[in-house]
């Protein structure tokens, strides 16, 4: 599928720039051009498809659907699935959270959306697909969706509504299932298409630098970190390696575009794939800036329960991946 990108990279590096195909610099640059081009194309296509899905099934429609249908527990899975396919800027997480609870969606179902939305995102999927292949990508995406589903269900069972901030509790009490209180300008699919295209272009443009930095760091680590370096410390399957990787990742706030090339090197140098996926999930799925934003709608105790539950589940999935992969 991507042979033509390899042909392009070979032509650019070995014919136009005229580097020796046997030299370290030549192979490294060839690898860099091939990987970057492939990932950018994948990212554009994935964001574009997600944009189309979102144009047909906007979050408001999901909210109404969840509100009106009796789904016998499937609502957690549907909410989590939507979290995975909705390409939102992370700053929208709080308005989306409010919109859900305001619309009468149970807190647990709302959590399913909130957990999966950053955890399974279009950038990470494109990077995974480009760097680890379809099998690892499917494992990552499916486990992220399941993590959101089960995490939301468990948090729902705890009955944590009393730990929301007062103004959110008032909104919940006066739940509004009716339409918005302003008129929305209707748009046909054809009218929405340029914005979807622009969004995909903007996302690719926005992460380009991170991808270049990530792949650059990855390429440098490939060359300078000794083979089996990580295997010596993290790769021998000690029980504490997964929790350590996750606990170290939570305070980190990095774009998936930069983190995936680095974890690819970790894996190449001996870190088990499960530990590496758990590390990435904790980096993109939980962050201190997100916690700060959530402070507007949740008490500190609820944020701690939410972060604690998701952290525990990421650790658990790390162990499961290491057993399965």
């Amino acid at each position: 599928m991507f042979e033509w990108i390899q042909t392009f990279a070979d032509w650019l590096i070995y014919s136009v720039i005229n580097l020796d195909a046997e030299s370290n610099l030549g192979t490294a640059l060839n690898f860099f051009v091939y990987d970057t081009t492939k990932i950018l194309i994948l990212l554009f296509v994935i964001v574009f498809i997600m944009g189309i899905v979102n144009a047909y099934f906007p979050v408001e429609r999901l909210r109404d659907f969840l509100n009106k249908k009796k789904l016998y527990g499937l609502e957690y899975l549907i909410s989590s699935l939507f979290g995975a396919v909705s390409p939102f800027c992370s700053c929208s997480s709080v308005p989306l959270f409010i919109g859900f609870v305001q619309g009468g969606i149970p807190l647990g179902v709302t959590f399913s959306f909130l957990i999966t939305s950053p955890l399974v995102n279009e950038i990470a999927i494109a990077m995974f697909l480009g760097m680890f292949g379809i099998k690892a990508t499917l494992i990552y995406a499916v486990s992220g969706i399941l993590l959101g589903t089960i995490g939301g269900w468990i948090l729902g069972k705890f009955k944590l509504e009393h730990l929301l901030t007062d103004w959110v509790k008032k909104l919940m009490a006066a739940k509004q299932t009716t339409d918005t209180n302003f008129e929305e300008v209707p748009q046909t699919f054809k009218e929405k298409l340029p914005a979807i295209f622009r969004e995909a272009y903007d996302i690719v443009k926005g992460v380009l630098l991170y991808i270049i930095i990530g792949i650059g760091i990855g390429a440098a680590m490939h060359g300078y970190v000794p083979e089996e370096f990580f295997e010596e410390y993290l790769g021998n399957g000690d029980w504490w390696t997964v929790p350590l990787a996750v606990v170290l990742a939570v305070p980190m706030y990095a774009n998936a575009a930069a983190i995936v090339p680095v974890i690819q090197v970790f894996v190449a140098k001996g870190v088990p794939l499960g530990t590496a996926i758990a590390f990435m999930m904790a980096t993109v799925g939980l962050s201190i800036p997100e916690g700060t934003l959530l402070k507007k709608v949740m008490t500190f105790k609820l944020i701690a329960i939410y972060f604690g539950t998701v952290t525990a589940f990421i650790i658990l999935s790390g162990y499961v991946f290491n057993l399965l992969l």
């Binding site: 308005p95 409010i98 302003f182």
Partner: peptide, 20 residues
């Protein structure tokens, strides 16, 4: 966020022009 909730805005950025 309270103002956004009043207007039921769920995505950022959103632009309201003359009530629409």
């Amino acid at each position: 966020f309270e103002t956004m909730a009043q207007h039921q805005v769920m995505y950022l950025p959103s632009v309201l022009i003359a009530g629409k």
